[in-house]
Computed example of a mutant assay.
Amino acid sequence: MVKHKYYDLLLAAFIAALLCSNLIGAGKVAVIDLPYLGTVSYGAGILFFPITYLFGDIFTEVYGYKYDRRAVWAGFSALAFAAFMSVVVLSLKPDSSSYMSHYQDGLETVFGNTWRIILASLIAFSCGSFANSYVLAKMKLATHGRYLWTRTIGSTLVGELVDSSIFYVIAFYGIWAVDQIIAVAVAQYLLKSGWEVVMTPVTYKIVAWLKKVEHEDYFDWKTNFTPFSIKL
């Protein structure tokens, strides 16, 4: 197996961004005033989550679908562990002091819905990420490695559509009003997709640098695209 210099570091950064997107930002609805659109609601996780798709594009474009597949399963495992530990910590009996009583209330407010957010993210992110990676890998073959911008943006449009369609329904149905779920999901899709367009020059520079230093520009001609594997 080829040894890559930076894959492990990129994988660690990817998992950190994924955990932040789900544990810090996913539960908060923020608002922004946009020209012509007025006030738009969006999930604060957008500060982190699009970065994970940027990583997915880089993994697939430079190292190939199999390396991104392994990254998705590593992120899946990290999210599952975080969900399990949040349940364990919240279930521990707190100290009887006034401070700890309020602290417990705060933990339950922030992390009480973590299991549901994590479940939604596990399903939505894995489906969206595999769709993103598959589309990018196939488009790379179809274009013979040219027109990188078409596949980074095109694959993100597909992956984010799958992700946004699944995540908010599972995570917040019955908690938020249906019209709010739809509004936030649509806003998230548009903002995340727009973010990918804006970041295209950065993606180009990172991909070009990695291909040079890693001596790798993988084409998935003979790849088995099953998502149910971690083999390289």
Rank of each mutant, 00 (worst) to 15 (best):
W176Y: 11
H102R: 13
K222R: 09
H4K: 06
T223C: 07
T152Y: 01
R69V: 07
A30M: 04
K231T: 12
F167W: 06
V72F: 13
T150V: 15
Y6K: 07
A208D: 14
C127R: 06
S133P: 02
I51V: 15
D8W: 09
L191C: 08
P227S: 15
G112D: 01
S21K: 05
S155W: 03
A83N: 02
T223H: 04
Q180V: 15
P201G: 03
D57K: 02
W221H: 14
A208K: 14
S164L: 00
K211C: 14
L37I: 12
S91D: 09
S129A: 15
W209D: 08
I175L: 11
Y53M: 06
K212E: 14
G106R: 07
I153T: 11
E196A: 14
F228T: 10
A137Q: 04
L191G: 08
L141Y: 03
A131I: 03
G174A: 08
S86G: 14
E216T: 14
I166K: 11
G64T: 10
Y168F: 15
G45I: 03
Y147H: 15
Y53R: 01
R116L: 09
K93S: 09
Q188W: 02
P35R: 11
A120K: 08
K192F: 04
I181M: 10
V202L: 13
W221V: 14
Y7F: 11
L136K: 01
